[in-house]
Structures are given as structure tokens and as C-alpha cells.
Write a protein that binds this DNA or RNA. Structure first.
Lengths: 401, 401
DNA sequence: CGTCTGCTTGAATCGCACC
DNA sequence: GGGTGCGATTCAAGCAGAC
């Protein structure tokens, strides 16, 4: 029975599994979403009753409830269940899980959050999915995971305000509690319930073309949290078999079940030859892509622009265009000559067919020359530079710079 | 009735509000969660029925349903409702909202995500809350907000127009010569439904009936998304009045209702003097109140200055002085005439004995006059203004502004 | 008024070209 | 000829327009 993918209805097939033998069940059940959900009472004035909800979703709730009850029996006392949930069925799934496992065994609502392509939807762009985590008992197995200090570390430092003390010395502001902010190297923070995991990318090799395919790393995390090696993992709606692949890679035993023969075959192929995407984004982190310092971009404050990260010549592109060509912006970097900055920008202008671009000068060692202007580059002094010169350099410039 | 905070049960007090007059309702209802949730059927073998759920939560569901039905009537046709939801009551709230507003008017589940200090709890660290967003009709008011592109996005995607070739493959569009076609204005990525808003103030205990204080920026974002100026915002469980404060700061009308007299009084105090009370808030967590000033001050990026929070005339004082007198800085505010800004600054200069000050012009409707210069005020145009004029207003200024 | 098809879109990878 | 910068490609959500 172990380490297999079985075709059939899980209600039947689960009978073949020994009770109290499974450590973790993960499921992403099918959701038969009726697009047309017509309420009998158009006025909606009637007193609310759960019976309506029941009637409207009776078939589905019974379908799921019957199966989840069996799953509960299969779980060990220290076992856990993770239910991946469509947003249209959240309340039904929650109600069933509360019923079968008990409210007291609700552990977490996990938010899988990701960035994705946009569309023209009116309203907010959907970019998360919900996973409910229940345990069979209070004594569930749980391996606390510490997350690496993420981008937030940076953000917090940026958020931290600098101020001056009474001796006019620059110090970091502390809050009323006087908390020292991330001074040393911490081991990390305990994993929280919002997981930022990239969506399975269109170009990912991991992709097998199955509609609801989940990233391996999502399943790996779930498996690592609640099982040890050689424990048994069950996925009763296994689809393309991601759960089984993850279990195999982590030396757990697994059982997968799916109605569709094609899904079972696909799963078997994947298990035989697992492919895991070595995602650059995951390996290096989001911040590794950021090559523009916040300071440079903050000089553009008040402008409507799109920041550009993956380009040497440009820091931003203005939202408004000039004669149907893009207006590029570059901020002169510290220790960079104005002429160097201009030549990088000029190169970018050529390849991007830009007719007019802005170079923001942050250092007054050099004067812009005519060559720069001929290329269509407008040099503007940053406000601090302008302030310095307007105040007259002799008195004002006490600072070294 | 407008711009007031009223004490009492919202079911009663909402009767005083004109029907179809409210543009936005935000509520964080109290959740009377029974910790001891005893199921009649200990074995949990019985066939699942929604009636159990109903019976167990009957009182609460009726309480909330009755009030939400009234709220629906108060909303304009293009109005929206945002319900802040405790994780223990999600399914009840969703069911009620589906019932009253209809599944087809479900717009988003907003995840408010924040970082929290770790605790020793076994399991995942809870670090999000859920907000349900329903509209009254399909034609709800929505002001799309655009955010920055992902760090991994490359320039060409922002700049170039794309098309499909004969094999339906997505390619970059080129002209006859093979040059890339410029795609025109790109605004950025529409705001998504996972909002990372810091919440440094550790949530005290669990909910005990008194609503926890929300960050202003959370409410500001909700209000900006779904209302325009002078629209009416209602918070039927307003607690400490954050919704009302946010509405006031954004020039929206508001009505707040709360059972507790103390809450109403606290709200009134905060509304009467948002600046003062909000600056107390700052110690706990820098709320969005800083927003407005922060925006102005970021124009000074690269300068060493001290921000000035509570002064009508000045936004900052430069660290370096001019002839042993302080250099004051003021940024022209939106809807403020340059002459107004100058006279406020001049007044501040007098009291601070400043010989030289900087006025940053952000609006080009008015030209600085000699009187201003005589007072020792140097007027500098903000970078956006300088860019506009350098690009030549006739072509660049397609935007209205 | 449904149903179908096509278009636009952003993220994140792959792989080419350029030093 | 090895590293890398950045241009090219892929995919699916969701609307618009066709029929």
C-alpha cells in the first residue's frame, strides 16, 4: 500500500489504508463552483438561516464531509491535516473541519501569498490562497522552523528614524519600549502563517501542465513542519502528484489517490524522475534583484515613475512620455563622475529609442557639458545641491562632503 | 447626523441614517467566541449538518445578520462594505455576507499581514487578519491604485508593445525597420489583496469585546479605494474611532457608532485633534499620519535636516546653519498658494530668527515675487516641476494636473 | 443572453550576445 | 572562453467582442 499512487475515489480507496497510520494528510479537493448561484429570495429580507447555505451546497458538503471523516480516522494521534481551499468554499470547508476535528484543534490559517500576472479585473488583484491546518489532537507533531531574516530586516532599518541627541550627535531613534532593533545576527524568527512562495512560473521546468499544480517547496514546507523521516503522508486528491514527489524527496512514505487515470500516470512519472526548479528568486531572494538604492529613488519623490531594477543605465522611467518615446531617468551615484553617468544613460537611450532623458546630478564637482545636452539629456541638480548653491557655498558648506 | 460619533446599539442608531446615502461601511464587529465549544456529539460520527453550526452560533449569527441587513440598505448602489473578521468567526461572517449581499458581489478577501514578535506558541506564528470586501452591486466605485513592478520585471516589458505572431506566440512588436514599438504609458501593477502593513503594537490579549486599534494607514487605504471626497463613511462598531479619524483626514464625511460611552468619548477626542493624538500613536508604531509630511520631506532626500512635526510654518530645519541662524524649510502643500506658503514661512522665520529659508515650490500656477526674496526666502522648484519645464510643457503636459 | 475565442497583461525563467 | 547583463519567451486570469 505504501509509496503508491492509486486511481479511484478516495472514499473507497482510503478503506484500504490502516487506521491511525498516517502522520500528515494534505488535500486540495475539487471545488464544483456554481457560477450561477441564484438566491430564491431576491429581496434578501428573509431571516438568515444556515439551512439555506446547507441547501445550496448540500451535495458538496456531504461529499467532502464523508471523506474528511474517514481521513480523521486514518490519522495518528499526533497527526495533522492541511486543506487547500478555494475562496468560494472557505466557509463550507471551515465548518466541516470544525465539525470533524473540533474548533480546539484548529491550528492555523496559512496564507500562501505570491506575485502573479495582472489582468484588467476591477478591484484588487487576487494573489493568495488559503490553507487550513488542523491537528487530530493537542499533542500534534510540530517541528518549529526558523526563517532566515528576510527583506523585512532591511525594511525595518529603513523605517528606523535617525535623529539627533542633545549633543547634536546622530543616533538611531528607539521607541518608548527602547527596543534594540535587530542589532546582532539572530537565528531567525519562527515561521509565521503568511508564506511568500513564488507561484509556479510559466517557464519553470517543474511545470507539468496540470491546472492546479502547486510548487514543490510549498509541500516540502508542510511536510517538514509536521512529519519526520519515514512517516506516512497521504494526498487523497493528488492531481499531478506534487505531494508525493515532495514526500519522496524528503524521505517520507506516501500514498496518493486520484480519480483520473491520467493524473495517476503523470504522478508516477514525476515520482520516478522528480524535477525541482532551482529558482533564482528563491535561492537569492527578492532583494538580490534590487540594485537601485532607495536613496536614489527617493530623489524622484513626487514624480510619477516606474522604478527599473535590472538595468545598469536607468533608475526609472517616467510614466508620461515625450513625443511618444520614453523618458528615462538616472540619478548620479556616489563616486560616479557626471560624465560616466551620462554615457551610461546615453547608451540606454539609444537602445530604448528615448529622445529625452533626465540625469539628476548629486555631486557638484563637475559641470555638465554641451555634449550631454546634444544627446537629449537634461541635467538637473538635486534639491540639496540647489539649496547649497543658493545659500552661498562659503558659509554654508561647513560639512566636509 | 453627519461627522458625529454616536453612543448606542448600531441596530437602533442606524435607523437614523438615510437609506442609500453611505458610500463605504467598515466594521470590526465584536466576536463573542465561546472558548468552550462543546459539541453535543462527542464521537463526531453523525452526518454533518449545517444545523449544528447554526444552533451552536445561533445567537451570534442572528445578532450580526440583523445588523448587516440594515447596513446593506444604508449603502448607495455603488457602495462597498469591508468586514474585519476574527479567525474564529470567518465561516459565519462569510455565510452572512453571501446571504445578504450575494456571492456575486464578493470582491476580495483582503489579507492584512504584519510581522509580530515571536512567542512560544507551538505551531505557526499568527501574523495576519482577514477583511472581507463586498460591494452592493456590480457598479461599485473603485479607484484603482497602482504599485511598483516586481524586481524581476525587465525594462522591455514596461517599455515595449507586444503582439502575437502567426503561431500565436507572444513577441515584441516591431516596425518595418525592426525597431521596437514603444508601448506608451504604463501605470504599474494594480494593488493586490495581500497588504503588508506594520502593526507594531502587539495585540493585547485576545479580543474581549473591545475592538483593537487599527493602523490609520489600513483605514486610509480602504477609504481611498472605494470613496471620493465628501462621500459618507460609516463605522457601526467604531471603537477608538480610527475609521472616523482616517475619514476626516481624507476629507470624507463620517458617522461612528459604538455601544461604549468611553469609546465614543475617546473617538471624539481623537477626531477633534487628530494631529496631537496621532503623534502619541507614533511612539508605538509609525502610522500613516506621517504620510503627508513624509511625502513632503522626501523631496529633501540627501539633505541633513530635522523634521518638524507640529508647526504650521515649517516642515524641517537644516542641520547646517546660515550665518549662525537656522535655515527653515517649507514644502508648498497641495491646494496651497505659493504666497500663502511664503507668508507662513516668513512668520516662522521671524519667531525663529532665521535669516535665510527655503521654500520648495510644487505647483507652477504662481511665480515667486520680489517680496518673497526680500524676506530671505529662496524659492526652489521641486524636481517634478523642473522636469516638466525642461521637457517643454506643450508636449509633456498631457496630464491635467 | 449564453458561449466561445482572442487579447492584454506581469512574473520569472531561459539563453543569447557581449565583454 | 567564462561570466553576466538583459532581451526573449511562456503561461493563465479575466475581460471584450464576436456570434
Amino acid at each position: 500500500m505504501i509509496n503508491k499512487v492509486i486511481a479511484g475515489d478516495c472514499l473507497e480507496k482510503m478503506k484500504l489504508i490502516e487506521k491511525s497510520s498516517v502522520s500528515l494528510i494534505y488535500l486540495d479537493p475539487p471545488f464544483f463552483t456554481k457560477k450561477k448561484h441564484v438566491l430564491s429570495n431576491k429581496e434578501r429580507t428573509k431571516v438568515f438561516s444556515f439551512d439555506d447555505l446547507w441547501e445550496n451546497n448540500k451535495g458538496y458538503a456531504e461529499f467532502l464531509n464523508a471523506r474528511i471523516e474517514v481521513m480523521r480516522d486514518l490519522l495518528k494521534e499526533d497527526g495533522s491535516i492541511f486543506v487547500h481551499c478555494d475562496k468560494s468554499a472557505q466557509h463550507i470547508v471551515r465548518a466541516i473541519l470544525d465539525n470533524v476535528f473540533g474548533v480546539e484543534n484548529f491550528q492555523s490559517e496559512i496564507i500562501w501569498s505570491y506575485k502573479r500576472w495582472s489582468n484588467s479585473k476591477k478591484g484588487l488583484l487576487p494573489s493568495h490562497q488559503n490553507i487550513y491546518f488542523y491537528s487530530k489532537s493537542k499533542n500534534f507533531k510540530f517541528n518549529t522552523v526558523y526563517t532566515a531574516y528576510s527583506e523585512t530586516t532591511n525594511v525595518d532599518q529603513i523605517l528606523q528614524r535617525r535623529t539627533r541627541d542633545k549633543h547634536n550627535k546622530s543616533i538611531y531613534d528607539t521607541n518608548e519600549v527602547g527596543e534594540a532593533k535587530y542589532s546582532g545576527q539572530k537565528k531567525g524568527v519562527p515561521l509565521n502563517d503568511v508564506w511568500d512562495i513564488p507561484y509556479l512560473n510559466p517557464k519553470a521546468k517543474e511545470r507539468v501542465g496540470y491546472p492546479t499544480q502547486k510548487p514543490l517547496i510549498l509541500l516540502e514546507r508542510i511536510i517538514q513542519l509536521t512529519t519526520n523521516e519515514n512517516d506516512l503522508v497521504l494526498d487523497p486528491f493528488c492531481g499531478s502528484g506534487t505531494t508525493c514527489v515532495a514526500a519522496k524527496l524528503l524521505n517520507r512514505n506516501f500514498i496518493g489517490i486520484d480519480q483520473s487515470i491520467e493524473a495517476v500516470q503523470l504522478s508516477q512519472t514525476r515520482i520516478a524522475n522528480p524535477v525541482k526548479t532551482e529558482s533564482n528568486l528563491l535561492k537569492k531572494g527578492r532583494s538580490s534583484y534590487v540594485n537601485k538604492d532607495k536613496e536614489a529613488l527617493s530623489l524622484l519623490s513626487g514624480l510619477e515613475y516606474n522604478a527599473v531594477q535590472r538595468n545598469k543605465g536607468i533608475d526609472a522611467i517616467l510614466v508620461n512620455s515625450f513625443r511618444d518615446s520614453p523618458v528615462l531617468v538616472r540619478v548620479q551615484k556616489p563616486n560616479e563622475l557626471l560624465s560616466e553617468a551620462a554615457s551610461l544613460l546615453a547608451k540606454a537611450m539609444e537602445s530604448k529609442k528615448s529622445k529625452k532623458s533626465i540625469l539628476i546630478q548629486t555631486n557638484h564637482d563637475e559641470q555638465p557639458n554641451e555634449v550631454i545636452a546634444l544627446k537629449g539629456i537634461v541635467v538637473l541638480k538635486s534639491l540639496p545641491l540647489q539649496i547649497e548653491s543658493s545659500l552661498g557655498s562659503e558659509e554654508y558648506l561647513k560639512k566636509v562632503s
